[in-house]
Amino acid sequence: MRYELLGPLQVSDGVGNFFLSAPKMEMTLATLLIGAGRVTTKEQLVAELWGARPPRRASAALHVYLSQLRKFLATAGDRDGRAILTKPSGYVLNLEDAGYDVADFQELIRAGRAHQGAGCHEAALESFELALLLVRGTVLDGMAEGPALCAFAAWVEAEQLDCLELSVESRTALGRHREVISLLDGLISQYPLRESFYRQLMLVLYRSERQAEALRVYRRAQQVLRTELGLEPCRSLRRLHQAILTSDRVLDLPMAS
């Protein structure tokens, strides 16, 4: 079995994919998944499903959802019925030998960082790209409403953006400037408030002897941030802008090959 939560929730038995059609059951399984291996209390599940206003028979409804989930997982490959264990205070999703895309995502990013720290940028880039491929869309198709699921969805987006930044760093270190410029143009259009993408684009343009374009990127960032947030660019972006204006030699440091 394999669980995939980095996008629409699905479970695979190695042959086909299985999906839940009932949103409450989907949120129940997702909540158990983000706490896999630990007890998720009944109170936590109720909070995820109904917030501060649960129905009068919330416990009975939850019992039905768990019963139906066990049947669903049996169809998806949990033949011995050990995927969801009942504990005195709640339930535990037992992964055992099951695959889990979130665990794979975390491990690939850890490996990429380790490779990058060792200067092995080809291997780092491969790990980052594999991690990014695991993200199939927004968690639960954007239907997450409870505190734990919303926090998890925000974490996934933050990790995805960090991974994109790291992949750009490795591409830049490998001298793939034209590819990096094209990639960053797209990322800035998609995430216009992410200042680090402007910084990366300014630096690679400057090092590609395109100083005027690098300065235009700063003005673009400044305009967007003022319009959208009423803020000036962060200190590191302002320092980079000044360094580019003065052709500071520190920007000419050779990049790793």
Score class of each variant (00 low, 15 high):
Leu49Gly: 03
Glu26Val: 04
Ala83Pro: 08
Ile188Met: 04
Phe18Met: 03
Asp13Pro: 00
Glu107Trp: 14
Met27Gly: 02
Val11Pro: 07
Val64Gly: 06
Gly35Met: 07
Arg238Ser: 14
Leu174Ala: 05
Leu149Ala: 04
Thr41Gly: 09
His115Phe: 10
Asp162Lys: 12
Ala131Ile: 08
Cys150Asn: 12
Val64Trp: 05
Arg82Cys: 08
Lys71Tyr: 08
Gln211Asn: 04
Gln242Leu: 08
Met255Gly: 07
Glu209Ser: 15
Tyr206Arg: 01
Met255Glu: 11
Ala58Met: 04
Leu32Val: 04
Leu240His: 07
Leu187Ala: 03
Glu165Cys: 13
Glu43Cys: 01
Arg219Pro: 14
Glu209Val: 09
Ala36His: 15
Leu108Gly: 09
Ser208Pro: 11
Leu215Ala: 07
Gly142Asp: 14
Asp141Lys: 06
Ala151Arg: 13
Leu29Gly: 02
Ser89Arg: 12
Leu134Glu: 07
Phe197Met: 04
Glu228Cys: 13
Glu213Arg: 08
Glu165Val: 07
Gly175Lys: 01
Gly119Cys: 13
Ala153Lys: 05
Leu85Pro: 02
Asp185His: 11
Glu159His: 10
Leu231Val: 15
His241Gly: 03
Phe105Trp: 04
Ser170Phe: 13
Leu93Pro: 00
Glu43Gln: 15
Pro233Trp: 03
Ala47Pro: 13
Arg207Ala: 02
Ile244Tyr: 11
Met202Trp: 05
Ala83Tyr: 13
Leu95Ile: 09
Pro147Thr: 00
